[in-house]
Design a protein around this nucleic acid. Structure first.
Lengths: 143, 143
DNA sequence: TGCACACCCTGAAGCTACTATAGAGTCAAG
DNA sequence: CTTGACTCTATAGTAGCTTCAGGGTGTGCA
């Protein structure tokens, strides 16, 4: 199948597929005489796998790891379990960060319910007065 | 004050400050004869404001908006309230996305509690079998 | 046959918010 | 007078794509 068809099947764009190929996540397919990429069932499955991982917000590095383990010489799947556990931890961390953020934002929002003049706006005053903690380097890759 | 001192006061790096200047978030300060940036109290306050906004995960565009409103001709702060409401919405959206993600990941993780062989690993099978929905374009800027 | 139009190709640049690096100048202390 | 901490500019790198420029290919229709 041609790249456009694969893109449709995998619910992603043609550009994304070419990008995955460049990144080494998706193996290079055969080419037609016109130099068009020509994909088979194995590519469909691999791309599907990758898109599922991405839907779970895994990084390319994590996906590369998983793909490597699937093809590698490992006899058991301890490393896979571990990778997933760590990814779940990242997501947990990010959720608590955002919950914290949300409560700060809501508090800030409550400082100005009316349509006051700019000078009196509690939000601006709040933003000027907040005590920012220094941002520690992120322990998660989730933005 | 010199850039290093400002960085310390604002809990960010020197590079970040120079970057904000290039982005137009922080006005260009005077220079000493040695061409060193020379900041005053207004810069401290402005940078503090910016860092607070960033701590709340606002984008530079959002911050630019806020700064513009503070200096602009607007008589009331409706636009500010609105900007904050939308930002809160972004955060809400991202939190529910991540909660959804988390439950999927935990379900996936439960598919393999033991140290099986790769071929039997429930996680890999789960990742291969999931039905990915097409990712809609993100309504939020939060990763 | 000619042509329009949808698809494919490559390579490079753009996005966000920084971070890091190279190579050079400045300043104060010892 | 040298050492070390600071400053400067300009450039490239990060993640995961998206967009663009400038072409080639293939099919249906007049």
């Amino acid at each position: 199948m041609k790249i456009g068809e694969l893109a449709q099947v995998a619910q992603c764009t043609v550009e994304t597929i070419r990008y995955y190929e460049k990144e080494g996540l998706l193996p290079m397919p055969d080419r037609t005489v016109a130099n068009y990429r020509n994909y088979g069932q194995s590519h469909v499955e691999r791309l599907h796998f990758i898109r599922n991982c991405r839907a779970l917000d895994m990084t390319h590095a994590e996906i590369r790891s998983l793909l490597g383990m699937m093809e590698g010489p490992a006899r058991d799947c301890r490393a896979i379990n571990q990778l997933l556990d760590e990814h779940i931890k990242h997501v947990d961390v990010r959720i608590s960060e955002l919950l914290q953020l949300q409560s700060q934002l809501v508090m800030l929002r409550e400082l100005c319910q009316s349509e006051r003049s700019i000078d009196a706006c509690g939000i601006l005053h709040g933003l000027a007065a907040m005590e920012t903690a220094a941002k520690p380097p992120r322990p998660t890759h989730l933005g």
